[in-house]
Simulated assay, not measured.
Amino acid sequence: MSNSPVTVTLVDDHDLAVAGLECLLKNYDSRVRLVDVRTALAHPDEVDVVLYEPMGQSAFSASMLRNLQAAAEAQAVVFSWAPGDQLPTTAATPYLSKAMTAAQLVVAMEDIVSGRGVPAPPQHTPAPVEAPAPEPAQLRTPTQPSGPAGSRLTPRELEILTLITAGLTNGEIGEQLGLSINSIKTYIRQAYRKIDVERRTQAVAWGMANGLVDEDAAVAV
């Protein structure tokens, strides 16, 4: 590429976009020269790159773009915020994002003119969908089991046995019921004596046998 600056024009319906690009490139006037569309149409042979925004393009801007493309040998380049899969199918393949820094934009336009590379539009990547959290064990409403052992259980002891059968730890049971670990242990000892078991696995088996939770929801500890 010669040492002459890249001559660029922007076809955009919004004056703010044109003013913003001019401000962005002002420190690179030795490498890039921005001209307005009318100047570009008057001297099409001097234009290297025609930037344009295809999203919401007015009929006037579309006409200006066609006239520039017909009169000049400049490379038409999409200049947009939109990702590639949201651009019109007629949009040019070369793409520059409005999110680029001034330095990135200048280098990209120099590369386009020199033939070193033509950026492709980025594709929109949907945010990953998080897997739903596993549902808690489906507990049945504690009901007094039949038999002499079950009939002696207090409602609190029955509730704790139900949670044990569902696989909860003492700490988790305490958090769920708002009780201290020591209180939970006391209730467990009392319940174990009444149902005549000594270990947690035996308590889980007793709870399953007495229908405290569904079998596929119970977890032996």
Rank of each mutant, 00 (worst) to 15 (best):
D48K: 05
E46S: 13
H43Q: 11
K98P: 02
Q144R: 15
P132K: 11
V47S: 02
G117N: 13
A218V: 10
G84T: 06
G115L: 07
A72R: 01
T186A: 09
A191E: 04
M100A: 05
L161I: 04
T165L: 03
T143N: 03
G171W: 02
A102L: 09
D48Y: 07
L51G: 01
V221R: 15
E22Y: 13
Q75W: 03
P83I: 08
D214L: 06
S2E: 11
K98G: 02
G178F: 03
S183C: 04
L51F: 03
E53I: 01
A205M: 10
Y52Q: 03
A99T: 12
E22T: 15
E157W: 08
N170A: 00
Q86G: 05
Q144P: 03
P122E: 10
Y192C: 00
A99E: 10
G207S: 08
W81C: 05
D216V: 13
S114A: 13
A92S: 15
T7I: 13
A131V: 13
E157V: 07
T93S: 12
N27V: 00
L96E: 04
S180R: 08
L96S: 04
R199D: 06
E172A: 10
T90I: 11
T162Q: 04
T89R: 12
V35R: 09
A205D: 13
S61P: 01
P148E: 14
D12V: 09
E73D: 11
V18P: 00
V118R: 10
R116D: 14
A127W: 11
I195L: 02
A120H: 15
L212H: 09
E73V: 00
I195P: 00
G174L: 07
D196P: 00
R193C: 02
T101P: 00
P88V: 03
V32R: 12
V18C: 06
A209I: 00
S151I: 02
L51E: 02
L139Y: 12
H124G: 05
A205N: 11
N182Q: 05
P88L: 02
G207V: 06
P44V: 13
M55Q: 08
R156V: 07
A133M: 12
A220D: 10
Y28C: 07
E73N: 12
E175H: 04
A133L: 15
S114M: 05
